[in-house]
Amino acid sequence: MEFDFSAVITYFPTLLKGVGVAALVALAVALMSVLGGLVVAVISIYTNKVVSAPLRFFIWLFMTTPLLLQLYFLYFGLGEWILIPAVVVGILGLGFHYMAYNADIFITTIKSVSGGQYEASRSLGFGHWRTILYIIVPQAFIRSIPQLGNNMILMVKDTSVLSAIGVAELVYASQYAISVSFRPFEFFIVIAAMYYVINIVMELGQAWLERQTSYRH
């Protein structure tokens, strides 16, 4: 078989738009899942069972069901009553999914900060919550960077799943081009290369962050 990349070149702007959508979705999901995960972790560690039990149930629910099913549920299931744009559903779905995984990481790293740190802060006169804010959470965050990075790389690849509910990210963008050019192989190769490049950039970013913070915990 012969390769012919001319169709890819013709539709390259469409693919780039797909990359743009995927990147924006990924950025929104990263913000939502990291900040949300941190809040979920802090609440589930430091508050009573009445508050934390529903959150633990939430984590459990999102970790034990497939992402695609969660997206279908939010888009088609809830779509029976309320019509939310696909891209919003995609961000919420991926966001909740990875929020659960990130919360799991933060729960471990928050607990790994020594009790001496808490006592030192309290002995200076800081209250319980300010100690958590200034002393515990920043250290836990630094310790979480390697695992958060891994999760975010998985998450970027999972943005492709959003094509199933019609979000115009990279894979979805290629589907139209493939259907008119009959060149699936060429498109898939180029798309794979694009994901690869995105992930290399993310890994470099993560390595840089880890270097910056390596001696701070």
């Binding site: 001496g116 006592e119 002995s123 920043p138 630094i142 701070r216």
Partner: peptide, 12 residues
């Protein structure tokens, strides 16, 4: 002021 055996400086 309290000074601890294991210092407990804030490493971050």
């Amino acid at each position: 002021g309290m000074v601890f055996q294991h210092f407990n400086l804030f490493p971050h």
